[in-house]
Simulated assay, not measured.
Amino acid sequence: MNRKFVKDVLSLIGDKGVLINGKASDIVVKREGRIFAVIAERNASRIKRGKVGVLNALAKAIDAIPLIVSEKMGSEKLLEDVIYERFDTPVASPETLNKLLSGDKIYIRKHKSAFVVSVNPKELKRKRVESGMSLGALADYLGVSKKSVYDYERGESKVSVDVAVKLVELFGEEVLEEVNFNEFEGVIEPCEPHSPIEAKLLDRTEGVHVPKGNVHVGKEREFVAVVPHGDEELQWFGEASKMIDKKAFAVGFEDLPKDLEGGNVEIARDIEEFVRLLREGKERDGRQRSA
């Protein structure tokens, strides 16, 4: 972890809804109804594929957006209001992260060597037809071919920043779409459980396992089960489970630390007890829904 840079990022975004020092990410933050799992490193090029894979596994497990926050990519300084990528995972500057957390829309993505923007095809066609412009007239205005405009309106092509600016001047921002984080597939490295109890947890619950983080989320996303290696790690996952509004089970522990007693973390001394508690919880929830 680049502690100095993490501190710089935190000083910019503030500490509201923030967890730090997780095993799989540097920062997890929830704002405006969205959760971001963040690795902070001054130069994104220094981050290895394996670490990005762990980040993506955690993000998938807790329904978060994975994000690498950096100032540079190699020798290139990251621009504000642009989403870059590394290992098919989003990368942004600290300033861009701050805007995302404030609910601002980010439209520009750097894909390979080009800066591109997605068009809302239905809105573009509606606005063009309402204005009385033909495909050819719009193509001439934008400086592109008629076929390009046809492709824009079918959602089959992104536009350059210059074309996006002209479209906004003509029709407004409604014809653009913000960067869709679901388009990033993100590498997830295959992982093996680190202990027999983790192996049993995977076998019995068929969920998403996060390597090195020892967190396991059921495929229905109704619980978080952790096999922590210490009280500090358990504390972190207890706080994380509150953030994502899931029940947390500490599997393989005999007792909870005093500061976690009465919270949302429940002890399961072994896998069998965990499965029983999970089943009882589902039955209880089912009765409450039918009442």
Rank of each mutant, 00 (worst) to 15 (best):
A37P: 05
N43W: 02
V38Q: 06
R34K: 12
V38K: 09
R49L: 15
N43V: 02
V38L: 14
L55P: 01
A40V: 08
K60A: 14
L58N: 05
N56D: 01
I39Q: 08
G33K: 09
A57N: 05
A59C: 07
R49Y: 07
I47Q: 10
G53S: 11
K30V: 02
I35W: 02
A40F: 10
R42N: 08
R46W: 09
K48W: 02
N43F: 03
K48L: 14
N56G: 12
K51D: 15
A40Y: 07
R31Y: 07
L55I: 02
I35S: 04
N56I: 08
L55T: 05
V38Y: 14
R46N: 15
V38E: 06
A59E: 02
A40G: 06
R49A: 15
R46P: 00
E41Y: 12
L55G: 10
K30E: 06
N43M: 04
R34L: 14
A57K: 07
E41G: 05
R42T: 05
R31Q: 13
E41I: 08
R42E: 14
S45M: 11
I47C: 09
I35C: 02
E32Y: 04
A59S: 15
G50N: 12
V52R: 08
A40K: 06
R42L: 09
E32F: 00
R34W: 01
R46H: 14
A57M: 05
G50S: 14
F36E: 03
L55E: 14
G33E: 00
I35Q: 02
S45R: 12
R46T: 11
R31T: 03
R31V: 03
I47R: 11
A59R: 07
R42W: 06
S45H: 10
R49F: 11
V54D: 15
G33R: 07
R46Y: 09
I39S: 01
R49H: 10
V52S: 09
L55C: 11
K48D: 13
V38G: 06
R46M: 08
R34I: 07
E32D: 12
R34Q: 09
E32N: 14
K60Q: 04
I35Y: 01
A57F: 03
V52Y: 11
